[in-house]
Design a protein around this nucleic acid. Structure first.
Lengths: 124, 124
DNA sequence: ACTTGCCTTGGAGTTGACTCCAAGCATTAA
DNA sequence: TTAATGCTTGGAGTCAACTCCAAGGCAAGT
């Protein structure tokens, strides 16, 4: 699959795909005889994974390290898992913060309902 | 309360506090006779609110609009509530995405446990 | 044979959100 | 009265993460 199709499939610009490869966020994609990238299913898997993880804010640094270790083979399983655990824990913290803030916003919106109903003294 | 103390209290640099005020993310803070910012309790409330909301990714644009409307008084209650609802809905979507990705990471970490236990064929 | 279209690369440019800096004014300490 | 501290402002600088650009290769269509 060529870059334009991958770009469309995952809604990531060709420039960004090339950029991700350049910095090692996804492994190097094979080129065909003309030097054009030809994405395998595995490459697509990496693109999807990266997009998903970046989307929720996993660190580029951690993901690059993960790809690097992956390419070194089976001896790096533990190290790779550690990165995932570290990133997962960070994500958990952020998710919990968001959950709390979501509640706070729900409350605030409810207060606005009351304010609008009664035009009582202002509230920030 | 002066800027240094506010900075420490909320762990936001003085430069950032001035920047937030400059772009309208918090309302203008009163200056004392020497032109020095003197934060009231209400100002502190804004700083805390802004920090909390920015922390979970609410748009600067929405928050600026909110502050703007707030300063126009009671006639803008509905418009302000709409902004909060819009931002809340966005936040909900992001939180849900994070929850799903968290699950995915948990699974992946579990798979690594199995791989490490058995050194079976590699898995990305 | 030439144009069109999609790709390549290295490198420069952009954007958002800060972060730093220089010049200058009050207040307090020595 | 000089020095140090902490603030002010407008504007410049930084950084991450893209995003764009120029110059050029290959191949299919006319």
């Amino acid at each position: 699959m060529m870059i334009a199709e991958v770009s469309e499939k995952f809604n990531v610009s060709p420039d960004t795909l090339r950029y991700y490869e350049r910095i090692g966020l996804i492994p190097r994609v094979n080129r065909n005889k003309n030097g054009v990238r030809d994405y395998t299913e595995e490459d697509l898997g990496w693109v999807e994974f990266t997009k998903c993880m970046r989307n929720v804010g996993l660190s580029i640094e951690g993901l690059i390290k993960y790809v690097e270790l992956f390419q070194q083979g089976d001896t790096t399983l533990e190290a790779r898992q550690e990165i995932l655990i570290e990133e997962r824990d960070q994500l958990r913290i952020r998710t919990e913060e968001m959950r709390k803030t979501l509640e706070r916003l729900d409350n605030k919106i409810e207060i606005y309902n009351e304010l609008i109903a009664g035009r009582e003294p202002k509230r920030n």
